[in-house]
């Protein structure tokens, strides 16, 4: 019996070891190191680090630039949720329940932008949407409108950057949500039709709740991945400007770490971001993973 248990333990270790090792060395240890660094004042290469205790964290909450960046991050999250979650969800509901042909074609086409690198996407959009000389601006001028100069307005820049991210992510999220909707038993839908229940009521009262776990998963994914994805367009087009108007907490961390070399500040920001994400993770596990009766965790 003992050798069986031993064998079992060895097997478990063997199966988990590669993943555990790589994640430990390349992800978990760095975050611990970052936590350590967040209590120092350093520029990454000076031989000595200055211990400053909680000062970096205090700066995060008192520095007006940081406050602006944190506020922007909320704006980003809101916009990303609408563009990358609500809209794909609505469209997926339309495709699943309101049309009966060409579903496959739409799926195929919607997904194509997801194949692209965001660097390419940012370059193409920046070119097309040039507020003075891009094709959209010229076209609008022909019909009497002017494209607002979104590059020098923080709010509009955020909208544009989210749209670029949305272009790439829309198809992926759409497909995820559609799959979730597709797993709702057809007999429920049929029964509702027989009883002449209007489609909207059916969706609101039955489909959405049944799809909750997939929806929540995509919701969390939208926030976490969205903020990471939108980094590339920010880096390519506005570099966080004008005056941090389009910067968010992730980009600001990068600015502090690799442009200003304020490693301590950057580390504190990174830890803050991570803590916020962890809270989202906790909610995700509670509402998504916990729903599955067969789930092992």
């Amino acid at each position: 019996m003992n050798s069986n248990k031993q064998q079992h333990r060895v097997l478990t270790l063997l199966y988990l070891a590669p993943t555990a090792l790589i994640l430990l060395v390349f992800i978990i240890i760095p975050i611990i190191y970052t936590l350590y660094l967040s209590f120092f004042d350093w520029n990454l290469i000076a031989p000595t680090k200055n211990f400053v205790g909680w000062r970096n964290y205090l700066t995060i909450f008192t520095d007006p630039v940081n406050q602006k960046v944190l506020l922007n991050t909320l704006g980003y999250i809101g916009l990303l949720l609408v563009l990358n979650f609500v809209i794909p969800y609505v469209i997926s509901i339309i495709v699943q329940f309101f049309i009966h042909k060409m579903q496959g074609v739409y799926k195929i086409i919607f997904f194509i932008p997801s194949l692209f690198s965001l660097v390419v996407g940012a370059m193409v959009f920046a070119w097309i949407m040039n507020p003075v000389s891009g094709p959209i601006a010229l076209f609008l001028r022909q019909i009497g409108f002017t494209l607002p100069n979104w590059t020098n307005s923080g709010g509009l820049a955020i909208v544009m950057l989210c749209l670029i991210t949305n272009w790439k992510v829309f198809g992926y999220n759409f497909v995820l949500l559609l799959t979730g909707l597709g797993s709702i038993p057809q007999n429920l839908i049929d029964a509702a039709q027989v009883d002449h229940i209007p489609k909207w009521r059916l969706i609101w009262d039955v489909v959405l709740p049944l799809n909750k776990s997939m929806a929540f998963y995509v919701l969390i994914l939208t926030i976490v991945q969205g903020l990471q994805y939108v980094f590339t367009p920010i880096n390519v087009i506005t570099q966080g400007g004008p005056y941090y108007g389009s910067s968010n907490v992730l980009y600001h961390t990068y600015l502090n770490a690799f442009v200003l070399y304020k490693t301590g500040n950057a580390s504190a920001l990174a830890i803050l971001t991570f803590v916020i994400f962890l809270i989202l993770l906790f909610l995700e596990i509670k509402f998504v993973e916990g729903r599955d009766a067969d789930a092992p965790i």
Partner: peptide, 10 residues
């Protein structure tokens, strides 16, 4: 949790 760690950290 490792999904949630931004790349600037690692």
């Amino acid at each position: 949790a490792t999904i949630f760690i931004p790349f600037t950290v690692t």
